Structures are given as C-alpha cells and as structure tokens.
Computed example of a mutant assay.
Amino acid sequence: MMRGSLAVSPSLSVRRLTIEDLEQVDGLNRLAVGPVIDPNVVKPESHAYFETIFAGRGFFVGVFDGAELVAYAILQHDHAASDDPRASLGLAPGAPVGRLAGARVAPAYRGQGLQRALIAARVRAAPPDMLLFSTAAPVNTASWSNLLAEGFPIRDIQFFFGGYARYLMVRDGTTYDPGRTLLVDPLDTPRQKALFAEGWRGYARGRLESGATGVVFAKPIPAVGS
C-alpha cells in the first residue's frame, strides 16, 4: 500500500484510501467544490460514484494532516462506454488505460502544490503497462497547467461526461520540437482543432499578448527508427 510523507510538505502524509475513508472523501468533495458546480469547468462527482471506485473501478490517493483528509485524487481504470478513450487513441478494447479522474484539495491547503503532487503520485502508483490520460476543461487553467507540467500533453478537444468540452491529455512520453511553436488561446476551439488535425499538440503553458494564459503548441519529434 502506498504510504509515506509528501515531497511538497513533509508534515502531510499520503496513502491509498479504503472504503472506511468514504465519508471523508464525500465531505471534502462538497467542501472543495462549494454549493454550485459548473460542469463546464469541473465534473460533478457523487457519493455513489465514489462507492464505485472503492468497489473496484479504480483507487484513491489521499493526503492527510494528522487524521484529517485534506486532499484526494482518483485513478480510474474502468470507464463508462461514453467516456472510454481507447477508440480515439487507436487502442484495443481491452488495453489497460487509466484516467486521472477527480482531485480535490481543501481550501485551506491550496497553493502548496498538492494537485501536482497527486498527479505524480498516481503516475507512480499506476501499473507500468497502463496508458494514462486525463481530461481538463479549456477554461480550467489550473487543471491543465498542472497536467502539462507533469507530462500530459494535449492531444485533442473532445466531449465527455454528457457533452462538456474537455482537453484530452495523454502521458505517452512524446517529446516536442521547441524550434517551431505556436501560442494559442485555449478558448479558440476551431484554431486548436485545426492544429490537432495537422499533428500539433499542446505541450506547455505560455502567456498571450493580452496577459492571459495560452497553450504552446508544437509537433512531436519522431522517435528514432520510426
């Protein structure tokens, strides 16, 4: 079982959660997202969904301050048919694929790098043959910025969770050509879709002339021998 201190804050401990932690997970989810959830930004999650993860659809990584759960994140390997990425990624139906799903941090513990630390923790805990992906709303800058920083480039914009636009971000170890890049507004969906179709990928965060956060696009560097 995963257990130990967290690199970003040695005073906090991390471990894999069990069904006994369910009520703390549910309470932290409600505390972190507040009374109104905009599904265009964050996927709503429920007590019933958490039960399915504990029942075998994936696992939770939790961060504790003493006995208090202050952050958690999910790695889900059993996907709903409508949200299964295998076909769009060119993978066989039974290929092992894990989604870095919901992550929540208690308001008092934000700004400590816990979101990035939880991404890294799930990557380490995943089976070595599992392809990892995640989704993030283009308007959710913090989410996709953290994923980019942890090696999840943007491959496409697709519709998940009942029709909400999300970046499809896949950790495949690809490197990118920094000598030819384009800086794009994350809200410019037609421009990004055209770039994805031409083989470009979003691989870094940048700054637009307006001062807003943009996505740096580049083309993958072909692997040697390919």
Rank of each mutant, 00 (worst) to 15 (best):
residue 110 R to F: 08
residue 29 N to W: 01
residue 73 A to W: 09
residue 143 S to I: 08
residue 164 Y to L: 03
residue 179 G to M: 00
residue 62 G to R: 00
residue 192 Q to Y: 06
residue 215 V to Y: 07
residue 132 L to M: 03
residue 98 G to D: 01
residue 116 R to S: 14
residue 15 R to V: 12
residue 97 V to Q: 06
residue 128 P to I: 13
residue 132 L to Y: 07
residue 197 A to G: 06
residue 79 H to I: 05
residue 87 A to F: 15
residue 212 A to M: 14
residue 128 P to R: 01
residue 87 A to T: 14
residue 29 N to Y: 06
residue 113 G to K: 00
residue 83 D to P: 08
residue 68 E to W: 14
residue 59 F to M: 10
residue 117 A to H: 09
residue 17 L to S: 03
residue 204 A to I: 05
residue 129 D to M: 12
residue 27 G to R: 11
residue 30 R to T: 03
residue 165 A to G: 04
residue 156 D to W: 04
residue 214 G to Y: 10
residue 115 Q to R: 13
residue 149 A to D: 12
residue 22 L to G: 02
residue 171 R to W: 14
residue 146 N to T: 07
residue 38 D to V: 00
residue 183 L to W: 02
residue 167 Y to C: 09
residue 155 R to V: 03
residue 75 L to M: 15
residue 10 P to V: 13
residue 59 F to Y: 14
residue 190 P to Y: 08
residue 206 G to W: 04
residue 36 V to Y: 05
residue 143 S to W: 05
residue 17 L to P: 13
residue 185 D to S: 01
residue 172 D to G: 11
residue 185 D to P: 12
residue 175 T to N: 04
residue 192 Q to R: 14
residue 193 K to N: 15
residue 170 V to G: 05
residue 41 V to F: 11
residue 91 L to C: 04
residue 75 L to S: 11
residue 64 F to W: 10
residue 209 E to Y: 00
residue 129 D to S: 15
residue 117 A to E: 06
residue 128 P to N: 02
residue 59 F to W: 13
residue 74 I to F: 11
residue 82 S to M: 06
residue 67 A to P: 03
residue 157 I to V: 11
residue 14 V to S: 13
residue 179 G to K: 13
residue 40 N to M: 09
residue 207 R to N: 15
residue 142 A to T: 11
residue 138 P to Y: 05
residue 169 M to C: 07
residue 86 R to K: 15
residue 25 V to W: 09
residue 203 Y to P: 05
residue 23 E to P: 12
residue 195 L to S: 03
residue 207 R to F: 15
residue 32 A to I: 05
residue 174 T to V: 08
residue 121 A to V: 00
residue 104 R to D: 00
residue 135 T to P: 05
residue 207 R to T: 15
residue 52 T to E: 08
residue 175 T to A: 13
residue 105 V to Y: 01
residue 81 A to K: 13
residue 92 A to V: 15
residue 65 D to V: 14
residue 150 E to L: 11
residue 35 P to C: 10
residue 76 Q to H: 01
residue 158 Q to G: 06
residue 79 H to W: 03
residue 76 Q to K: 10
residue 51 E to M: 07
residue 198 E to G: 06
residue 33 V to Q: 03
residue 181 T to N: 06
residue 212 A to G: 12
residue 35 P to A: 06
residue 148 L to V: 09
residue 138 P to L: 02
residue 166 R to K: 08
residue 225 G to P: 12
residue 20 E to H: 15
residue 45 E to I: 03
residue 46 S to H: 01
residue 183 L to C: 13
residue 52 T to P: 02
residue 217 F to E: 01
residue 204 A to C: 09
residue 89 L to E: 14
residue 199 G to T: 01
residue 104 R to E: 02
residue 127 P to L: 09
residue 170 V to T: 10
residue 157 I to R: 06
residue 211 G to R: 12
residue 61 V to G: 04
residue 125 A to D: 01
residue 104 R to Y: 02
residue 39 P to M: 01
residue 115 Q to V: 15
residue 154 I to M: 05
residue 147 L to R: 08
residue 83 D to F: 09
